[in-house]
């Protein structure tokens, strides 16, 4: 009988002895709950609050026309350590879209949930946790200039690429 077979027999005998003793001791037991709770992730969301619209539909504007576009958006920022910044290309788009005798102006107003204004630093608005409102307005005024020039006829003012971007900032 080699060593392997002898070892197996000895091991089997040992296990049998241990099993024979099972159930005869009262084993102590205690447990605790580690109350670490639930971890929730936050939110950073930019949504349309009021769908943008012009106050009047004009296919071709002419001297004397005044029209205004308004829209509003909501920022939902939830997160104890969340900081975010908001920027928009609205001012540069509007500045580039000028036609003689036509004034195009934009307003971009950010307010917090208490209607206090949030001011921009270098064109960027900074946020911490909270709900914010963004009001966008674009006014187009075609000045009534006597003997207006032909340079303002058949012109296009392209405002189709305006966007608002909300980005979380690294702490």
């Amino acid at each position: 009988m080699n060593k392997l077979v002898k070892g197996s027999i000895a091991g089997a005998a040992g296990i049998a002895l241990l099993l024979g003793g099972a159930g005869t001791f009262a084993l102590w037991n205690a447990d605790l709950t580690v109350a670490s709770g639930t971890v929730n992730t936050g939110t950073l969301d930019l949504v349309v609050a009021t769908e943008g619209a012009w106050d009047q539909e004009i296919d071709n504007i002419v001297p004397g026309d005044e029209l205004t576009y308004t829209a509003s958006y909501t920022v939902n920022a939830v997160g104890d350590n969340l900081t975010a910044k908001l920027s928009s290309n609205i001012d540069s788009i509007v500045a580039a879209a000028q036609v003689p005798n036509v004034d195009v102006e934009s307003t971009f107003t950010v307010t917090d949930s208490d209607a206090n204004p949030v001011s921009a630093v270098a064109g960027e608005y900074s946020f911490v946790e909270g709900t914010y409102n963004i009001a966008v307005s674009i006014s187009v005024t075609f000045n009534d200039v006597a003997n207006g020039n032909a340079g303002d006829q058949d012109q296009s003012i392209d405002l189709s690429t305006i966007s608002i971007e909300l980005s979380q900032t690294a702490i």
Partner: peptide, 9 residues
């Protein structure tokens, strides 16, 4: 923001 394009007559 989608105000589109304004065209003068």
């Amino acid at each position: 923001v989608s105000p589109g394009t304004i065209t003068s007559g």
